[in-house]
Computed example of a mutant assay.
Amino acid sequence: MQNEQLPTEDLKKFGIINEDLSFSKKLNENDIQKFLNGYTIVADNDKNRATFQLVENNTKLKVIFLERDKNLSEILENSKKEIQYSETFSKYDLNDEKNAAQLNWSKTAFIYDKENEKITEFDFIKNRTELTAIIADKKDISETNRYKNELQKLKNFLFDKINQYPEIAKEISKDLNIVSKEIDTVNSISPDEKQISKGENSEVHLNVNDKDLYEDANQIRDEKEEQDEEIEKPRGFRR
């Protein structure tokens, strides 16, 4: 890894490195190594979200600014009462070169682990297996129906975008198929009312996901982003 080729001025601008070229103390050694190997830093502040990723052999910093449909503080507080669903959008529909559609959008669920007092964010596409398992484990008809409704909204959204963004229709179709299969999975494991009446519950243990500071960019995503610019896409459409 050629760290001397890092885009230092841009990294300084967003507080990822300091003036002496050391990395921000908000990032631990593991975070730094992930970032240098293509992982994306994600930072949130209220409705704003920013993602930072090193591309082109670590010589360029790719930055995407997004806006959430609700304030993060509101989502975190309400998640203690019930699962919160949220969407983030970019203000731009084209990439920097203006030659291909880049639909920057994602849908996530915030789930509160009461026992450990932690909140974790799950992406509907990347974390679908774990998210569906958690919903199913609750054995709550009302919660299951809420989740299915959110999945259907996502399916409708993707379907509408296929014709609108023909440049990335193939990628959208892949995610559309994923969501459709997940809806089928949820339907096949929907809880039976008789079982629920027995009061069966399971504790869900989630990983720590600390609240981010937008300015400091102090959260590393667990999913490695592709560096091939031809297929660079936002969270909802990246592999």
Score class of each variant (00 low, 15 high):
1 M>A: 12
3 N>T: 15
6 L>S: 08
7 P>S: 09
7 P>C: 05
9 E>F: 03
10 D>E: 14
11 L>R: 04
11 L>M: 03
12 K>A: 06
15 G>V: 03
15 G>K: 03
18 N>R: 14
18 N>G: 01
19 E>I: 12
22 S>N: 04
23 F>E: 02
23 F>H: 00
24 S>H: 04
25 K>Y: 12
26 K>F: 14
32 I>G: 09
32 I>P: 03
33 Q>C: 09
33 Q>T: 13
35 F>V: 05
35 F>Q: 02
36 L>W: 06
38 G>L: 05
45 N>E: 15
50 A>P: 01
53 Q>M: 02
55 V>M: 09
58 N>I: 01
60 K>N: 08
61 L>Y: 08
61 L>M: 01
62 K>C: 10
62 K>H: 09
64 I>F: 06
67 E>M: 10
68 R>D: 04
69 D>F: 04
70 K>G: 03
72 L>D: 06
73 S>F: 10
75 I>D: 07
75 I>V: 15
76 L>G: 08
79 S>C: 13
80 K>N: 02
86 S>W: 11
87 E>C: 14
89 F>M: 10
89 F>V: 08
89 F>Y: 15
92 Y>D: 08
92 Y>G: 06
95 N>H: 09
97 E>I: 07
101 A>I: 00
105 W>E: 00
106 S>L: 04
107 K>M: 11
108 T>I: 08
108 T>L: 00
110 F>W: 11
115 E>A: 13
116 N>I: 01
117 E>Y: 05
120 T>G: 00
122 F>T: 02
122 F>H: 07
124 F>M: 05
126 K>H: 15
127 N>P: 01
129 T>Y: 13
131 L>F: 00
135 I>R: 07
139 K>D: 09
147 Y>V: 10
151 L>I: 06
154 L>K: 01
157 F>P: 00
159 F>Q: 09
161 K>S: 06
161 K>M: 13
161 K>E: 08
163 N>L: 14
163 N>P: 01
164 Q>L: 15
165 Y>F: 13
166 P>T: 03
166 P>I: 03
168 I>S: 04
169 A>F: 03
169 A>W: 06
170 K>I: 12
172 I>S: 05
172 I>K: 02
172 I>M: 05
173 S>V: 06
174 K>L: 11
175 D>E: 11
176 L>C: 05
178 I>Y: 10
179 V>K: 03
181 K>S: 07
186 V>I: 14
193 E>M: 02
193 E>S: 13
194 K>Q: 08
194 K>H: 11
198 K>Y: 15
199 G>L: 07
204 V>L: 13
204 V>E: 11
205 H>L: 14
205 H>D: 07
208 V>C: 04
209 N>T: 07
209 N>Q: 15
211 K>A: 12
211 K>W: 02
212 D>H: 01
213 L>H: 09
214 Y>V: 11
214 Y>D: 00
216 D>I: 05
217 A>V: 09
221 R>K: 12
222 D>I: 09
222 D>H: 09
223 E>P: 00
224 K>D: 05
224 K>G: 01
227 Q>E: 12
228 D>N: 14
228 D>P: 00
229 E>V: 09
230 E>W: 03
232 E>F: 15
233 K>S: 13
233 K>E: 07
